[in-house]
Every structure is written in C-alpha cells, then in structure tokens.
C-alpha cells in the first residue's frame, strides 16, 4: 500500500480495494501468522465499542503483537483534560501503530497528522469507519462473488450511520451499483452523499418502507439508530418506533 495510515475509505483506489479483498481471503484461510511479532499496538477507544475493539485486538493477538491502550476515555488522561494532540504524541512514542476510535469527526485524520506511527481509524464520530467498510465489502464479495452490478439496500439510520456513508463511497467505485435508501425523513441519507452519486451518474432511490421492494435487493444493509449521535433525547424517542432497527438494537 502506498499510504501509512488508514483514515478514510476515500483514500483507496478500486485496485487497492481488490488487493485488500485478495489478502483478506488469505488471512481468513490462515489467520495465525507472526507478522506483528515484537510490535506494540495501541488501541485507543475514546468511545465505547465491543465488536470493533475485540476484532482489532483478536487480530493483533493472532498476528503475534502486544496490545496497550484503553477502552474508555474515563480511564485515560483525557478525563483530566489532556488534548487529543498530546495523547497521540505520547502514545506514538510507545507504540508501533495506533488504532483509534473517537467521537469527534476528523479526529483520526488529525491523529495521523500529529503521530509518528501509522494510525488506523476505528471510527471518528459519524464520519468514517473504513475497516468496517472493508469487512462489508469482503462480505459482499464472498456472498455475491462480485462487487460490480450490486443492488444495495441501505436501511435504518442513514443520516448518522458512518458505515453506510463509507460503504456508499466505496461501492460507488465499482461498475453499475444501484443504491436504495430506506429510512424515515428524519434519518434520510444526507444531501451531500446523494449529490456525490448524482455527480457520478449513479442511480439511487429513496423509500419510506421496503416490504414491496425487498426482493430486488442483492444486499440488505441494516443499521440501527445511532442514539449516541443524537443531541436531543426527544428526537430519539420520536424515532424509536418508525425505524426497522430501533434504537435499542446493538
């Protein structure tokens, strides 16, 4: 790969996606390798996570690396007011790589800028979650045996769900994708992503329900309501019963 850090799915070309898919299949066939032997990897989770953190930590263990870090910002110096800049500068002196989740958008790009070691973005607010997108693409590739000509239904919280934004950007690089967005108006796909598709001449459709059209889908991508992104709890309560995946689903 030409770049050190993994920050945004938009940093990759189609060829690089395909190369990663090919490598992923090899790792899946033979997961226990010693590629990280002697390396220290920092997992800095400023925001709660179960699947992403355990996936990364499992991968590091399987590849022979050692893990340092925290899974809750309350147990780090952030709770004492330390800036992200200072945390990253300090950790980059200890670790060979940083894997970071942070609630603020753009935090991963900034961390990569101030860090001396590569940074992997494990989610920065509602912005990007590139490793999840690579996994989603790998799942599509595995089940459909292709990434071209996919009719992809995205359902649920399309406004705050970072994985849908990342997946949309990635899949738009392949031939003839069709996007169907199923969401209540309050959680609709933001205009900037619809504009992005229009400018690339890619078809998309918006729906409030998907019962009558579900059989057209190659892939149905369900997301939960991102309750941690809501500023006003009243807005969340209002949406609790109108989204196929309610706010309590994990």
């Amino acid at each position: 790969m030409s770049q050190k850090s993994l920050i945004s799915i938009t940093d990759f070309s189609k060829e690089e996606y395909l190369k990663i898919m090919e490598l992923s299949a090899k790792f899946e066939a033979n997961p226990n390798q010693s590629l990280l032997k002697g390396k220290v990897i920092a997992t800095l989770f400023f925001e709660p996570s179960t699947r992403t953190r355990l996936s990364f930590e499992t991968a590091i263990n399987r590849l022979g690396g050692k893990i340092i870090g925290f899974s809750d910002s309350n147990s780090s110096s952030v709770s004492k007011g330390e800036s992200l800049h200072d945390t990253i500068r300090m950790v980059s002196n200890y670790a060979d790589m940083i894997i970071m989740r942070h609630p603020l958008e753009g935090s991963a790009r900034y961390a990569a800028e101030v860090s001396d070691v590569p940074v992997i973005n494990a989610g920065d607010g509602a912005n990007q979650h590139p490793s999840q997108t690579l996994l989603d693409m790998y799942s599509i590739m595995k089940t459909q045996n292709r990434l071209d000509d996919i009719n992809l239904f995205m359902v649920g919280d399309l406004k705050y769900g970072r994985t849908v934004h990342s997946l949309l950007m990635a899949m738009s690089q392949f031939k003839n994708p069709i996007f169907n967005f199923v969401a209540p108006p309050e959680l609709a796909m933001p205009d900037e992503y619809k504009l992005f598709l229009s400018q690339k001449g890619i078809c998309y459709f918006e729906h409030l329900e998907f019962n009558d059209i579900i059989n057209q889908a190659d892939i149905i991508y369900m997301t939960r309501v991102q309750k941690e992104r809501f500023i006003a709890p009243a807005d969340l309560t209002k949406l609790a019963n109108c989204c196929p995946c309610g706010p309590t689903i994990g």
């Binding site: 992200l84 800049h85 942070h102 609630p103 958008e105 753009g106 920065d124 607010g125």
Partner: peptide
C-alpha cells in the same frame, strides 16, 4: 471555521 460542530477543528487547536 468548519460549520460542523462535531469536527475536531472546533474542539482542539487545529
């Protein structure tokens, strides 16, 4: 200034 209140540039000296 970035219009996005959740952007890192509005939280740290960036």
């Amino acid at each position: 200034r970035c219009f996005n209140p959740k952007c890192i540039t509005n939280a740290e000296n960036v």
